[in-house]
Computed example of a mutant assay.
Amino acid sequence: MRAASIGAVLSGALVLSGSALTAAPAASAAETGVEIKKVSVNGGKAVVFGTSRTESFTISVTASDDSGISHSAHRFVGIDREVGDDYWTFHGTPTCTADSATTSTCKFTVRLERDIDLPRNTLAGPWKVNVQLTAKDGDYYGETYGTHPVQRRSTLNVNASPEPVTKGGTLTVTGKLARANWDKYVYAGYTNQPVRLQFRPKNSSTYTTVKTVTSNSTGNLKTTTKATADGYWRWNFTGTSTTPAVKATGDYVDVR
């Protein structure tokens, strides 16, 4: 049985966004009369959901037609993704503002609230961005305008010990990489992921990678390294298509 879930439209708006919109070729004005000039999802950043229902994002579409874009006729903006039996969509009616006699910008904001669930874990990844607009003379544009990433929020922490440590002594650096589990509304360890251990000397602003460690079956990280100077230790995860990059706040170690 197909699990279909739909985000409701709230306050005339809904949300969608992503880091890098992969645009499909826009239909030309000669084909439809309506030309899509620009589509921006979440200001060019990926849509990232944690475990709360307090997220909000905006889709902005700039379009033109010789007769102008209608601000009252049919118009629609939304994003959706289907993987196997799982399907999810956020969609609604954008508010349009005229930039000129021929061009308008239509914006749509989604705000999650307590009664709107998060997607399933399987749906993290590229979502289709759908745009439908009508010109004042009846010309119509309705297409999937590329894709945009929707990701599960990640967390990462670090602890280096002992503190202080003798110069040349052994430091044990631990931490945990986790990400939002949308199915259970908790953060769970992100397993089998390469994470870089980095060091920044006390009077420097630059981190250098010391080694790469793979998270274990619970997302935990652990390694040892030699203490050579005062400074900050952190873990750095570069991210995946479903999970954004994250850096731990550096843990300062005094070397004596």
Rank of each mutant, 00 (worst) to 15 (best):
R2N: 10
I6R: 14
G7E: 11
V9T: 15
G12N: 14
G12C: 06
V15Q: 12
A20S: 15
A24F: 08
P25K: 11
A26S: 13
A27L: 10
A29W: 00
T32R: 11
G33N: 09
E35F: 11
G43A: 12
G50D: 15
R53A: 12
T58E: 15
S60N: 14
D65A: 15
D66Q: 14
S67T: 11
G68I: 03
I69G: 07
A73F: 01
H74S: 09
R75M: 08
F76Y: 15
V77M: 13
V77F: 14
I79C: 15
R81C: 08
G84Y: 06
W88R: 15
T89A: 15
F90Y: 10
G92D: 12
P94W: 01
T95C: 01
T95W: 00
C96M: 04
S100Q: 05
A101N: 13
A101G: 04
T103W: 01
K107P: 14
R111W: 06
R111E: 10
L112H: 11
R114D: 11
R114G: 15
I116P: 00
P126C: 00
V129L: 12
V129K: 04
V129N: 05
N130H: 14
A135T: 04
Y140T: 02
Y140H: 10
Y141S: 06
Y145C: 02
Q151Y: 00
S154L: 03
N157D: 15
V158C: 09
V158W: 05
A160M: 07
P164S: 10
T166H: 09
T166F: 11
G168N: 08
G169R: 06
K176C: 01
A178R: 08
R179H: 14
W182F: 04
Y187Q: 08
T191K: 14
N192F: 02
P194K: 06
P194Y: 07
F199P: 05
T206D: 08
T208F: 02
T209H: 05
T212K: 07
T214Q: 10
S215Y: 02
S217D: 13
T218E: 13
L221S: 03
A227Y: 06
T228F: 01
D230V: 02
D230H: 13
T238L: 12
T242F: 00
T243R: 12
K247R: 03
G250F: 01
D254C: 01
